[in-house]
Structure formats: C-alpha cells, structure tokens
Write a protein that binds this DNA or RNA. Structure first.
Lengths: 243, 243
DNA sequence: ATTATCTATAGATCTATAGATAATGC
DNA sequence: ATTATCTATAGATCTATAGATAATGC
C-alpha cells in the first residue's frame, strides 16, 4: 500500500511536525515516547522526522521553543489601568483565572510541559517564569499594593511584595496542576468559576487586602461583568496554526 | 573479576533494592531509567533485580507503596490542641513548613515522585492526597476557623472551608515544587525560614484571619519558639532503613 | 538441599541512516 | 534539477530469561 503523502516545503513541514507532535511529547514525556509514535502523530515516516530534526533531542528542544510563546499574557491592558484597590482586584482575579483556565486549544499540553520541566531540569520552567511578562506583572502588583495601602484597604506586608506575587501565582498554579491529572486528586467544592473566584479572594486577602474590601471587590456580579469585558481578558494568544 | 556480592535473604534484598533504587527512579522517571542503571544503583546484577521483581513495571508499583508512607505527618499533636486562633496559626505554620522543608533524607525523592505523578496519570498523587491524614487536617482547620471566627479574629468565608484548606496547601506545595528544580525558576526574597513564615502569613490571611491578628500570631519570636518545641514538629517520620 | 547470585544471551524495540522513488518548480 | 518522501535496515540498547555457580542453614 504505497501511500503518497501530501508534500510540503521544508519549513512548513517542520512547523507541522512540531505542532502535531507536541501533545504526545507533553503527555508521555521525552523518554516515554518513541520516534515511531512521534512520526505516526505527524503522519509521516520516521525517516522524514529525522530529515527535519537531526535527532530526537533536537526535536525536543525545538518543541520547547515552539511552546514557550503560548504562555504569553496580554498584560498591556492591565498596564493601562491606574493603580488602586479596584485595579489590584482585577489584576489578581485575571492572573488567577488565566492560570487556572487556559483557553488556548493546547492548554494542558503546554502546562504539562511546564510542570514536567519542574521535576526534571527546570530549564523550560525558567524560560517561562523568568520572562519579562512576569517582571511586568510583579511591578503592576507592586504599584497596586502601594495604592491600596495608601487608601487604607490593605495592610503593609511583613516581607517582600515579590514573594506575595509568587504566593498568589502558586495558589493558582497548583489548582491548575491538580486539574491536569485525569481524575484530580483534590476535589474542590463548587464549579470552576467559583473556585477561581474563591482562589482570587484567598490570594487578595493573602497579599494583605482587608477581608471586607475583598468581599466588596469580588462579588459574583462584578467578576461576571469583567468576564464580559473583552478589553481585559488577559488570556493567552492562540498558537500559530500550521498551514 | 568474579565479584562475590553480599548475600541477603529475599525479603531484605527486596527492601534494599527498593530503597536503593528510589532516588534514581524519582529523578529520571520510569521511562528515563534503565534496568541496568537500577541494578547498578542497587549494587546487584540485572538478573537478580528480575528475580525479586517480575518486571520493571512491578518494581515501579512497589516503589510507590514503599514511598507513600514518607508523606505521613504526626498530626496527633495538633489534634490535641484546643481550637482557637492560636491553634489555627500553629496549624497553618506547621503544615506550610512541613511541606516546604521536608526533613526526611529522601525528601526531594518522594516529592519528585508525587509531582511527576501529577503530570502523568495522577494515581500516586491521589493515594497521597486523599489519605486520611488530610481529611483529619482539614477537619482541624475547620474547627480552628470556626473558633477564630467566633472570637472575631477571622472573617466568615464566602466559599467552602475545604477549598481554603487546599489553597493553603497549594501555596506551600508550589514553593516546594519550585525548589525541586536544580536552579529554581523563582527566587524568593529572604532565606527559607523567612519564606516559610511569609507564606504561612499569606495563607492565614488568605483563609480569612485578619491581617493584624496574623501579624501578632506569626512574629519571628513566636515561630522560633515553636521550632524549639519538639512536641509539635509535625514532620515526616524517617523512612524505614533497610537492614 | 535450598536459596541467592552471577554471566551470557535471546528477542524485541528504538534511534538513526542509506539509498531508491516520486512530486515539485524552474 | 531539486527537494520531499518512502522502504528497508543497521547498530545500539533495553527488558527479561536460561542455566551455571556459590553461599547459607539444617
């Protein structure tokens, strides 16, 4: 059965391979997946795979680069808001939400890759977490905290604002990680949007915002209205689709 | 070079293998490690490995069981304390600390296994996180919250206490996970004990305890005195050493 | 006599390459 | 004429077993 495959120019084929192969690689891990499986997922022969990538290792490296962009956030909108208690609530809510609910089609793929990296050498995780966008977000959070403190809505911190940023990030990240496992080992009460709102409230109180202020800021009606506002979705951009 | 190995009775050898093999398996993952490497780590031939474990897969399963116990906490001491704001602070502080700083020798090994499980099928993570000790801790936290609320030290939650417990747990877990990667992708300000205290404060505020109360409860002097109290270390028991 | 251990190796699988064939674009 | 693709296969490696040898305990 000589099956003549669709012929593609080198660069397109390369992208197509990366795209097709990513989910499998993320799910099974570099060592758990075979080049035979990868080729099958890309709908090509193993020989062609090795023509486009000199080795399995090289393919793996390219996949990381291909995937890294999917963690970008459109933070410019947030950057435009004036620092204050309301801005702080929005910032935390959207960061938490965009981590817990990733909208990109390949969401759990890129996240699996990220967390897998953490238990291994951590290289990929470093590229993602040390990227400029996080420095930016940290700065924004700092500005929001300062404004909220000045307004009396927030307690001064005992430690560094930077640590508070990461604690917030961690709360959301671990919820996301728990949801990656087929049957989650932790079952939260309420539906996902509820969990997102509760986690955002937890994080806001955690960074020092007074409980009463948090309750006023994160009402169901308010977050619902934010979700309808396309100006501030803060979600990951779509991946570049091949072809 | 016929090297006569030390001869051990079957059960002892089996335990010895499990013990010797665990770190390598956790670090490289089931697919990333070879039976040759595993045998070498255990100081035996591959043939002997397969005599004690019918397959690599079977060895892997046993390793999970062997490792699961290292997550146990000595929560009985906490269970003995009367619910109240002070108990709540202690509980959160020690849970956070025991997650971030695991004292057992094979600490990062068991944690790697746990987090690796999360990006894979999640089976092991479920055994660990759904264990009775967590239900117990959750109950204790609930009692502490109720008492602190009655005392006016803590805001009533908008959601379930159970979710608050997990958010606290998540904050600590992710700090721990970040520290597993060789060079951590996130660098916190301050030394580890400081980070632990700040994270505990974050979590306490997060679950609703008023910022001023948290500040009063988690002073450096207070946590230092807790650390000197052997009654309440709440740390993981030592692994059973072979032989 | 039984049980633990080793050396040697089979059989399967996995990465990677060689060399032939067919589609594309000038 | 060039470039993409395939089939076939080499060479390495990996899991697992067969069969021989040596230590232990009755």
């Amino acid at each position: 059965m000589p099956r003549p495959r669709r012929r593609l120019p080198a660069d397109q084929r390369k992208t197509a391979i990366a795209h097709a192969v990513l989910p499998l690689l993320a799910r099974k891990g570099f060592d758990g997946v075979t080049t035979r499986e990868l080729a099958a997922a890309a709908g090509i022969s193993e020989a062609l795979l090795f023509r486009h990538f000199p080795s399995k290792e090289a393919l793996n490296r390219e996949i990381y680069e291909y995937c890294a962009h999917s963690f970008e956030l459109d933070y410019r909108r947030i950057a435009g808001l004036a620092p204050g208690t309301g801005m702080l609530a929005r910032l935390v809510y959207f960061v938490v939400r965009s981590i817990v609910i990733k909208r990109a089609a390949d969401a759990d793929t890129s996240l699996r890759l990220l967390y897998r990296s953490l238990v291994e050498d951590g290289r990929f995780a470093r590229t993602v977490l040390m990227a400029p966008r996080f420095r930016m977000l940290r700065k924004q959070l700092g500005a929001g905290l300062a404004a909220a403190r000045a307004a009396g809505d927030c307690e001064a911190a005992d430690g560094a604002d930077e640590n508070l940023f990461w604690f917030m990030h961690h709360t959301a990240s671990m919820i996301c990680l728990m949801r990656l496992a087929g049957r989650p080992p932790v079952s939260y009460r309420g539906n996902l949007e509820t969990v997102v709102r509760e986690a955002a409230a937890f994080a806001l109180r955690g960074i020092g915002v007074r409980p009463a202020v948090v309750a006023a800021q994160l009402t169901g009606a308010k977050t619902a209205s934010w979700l309808r506002d396309p100006e501030l979705t803060l979600l990951a951009p779509q991946s570049p689709q091949p072809e």
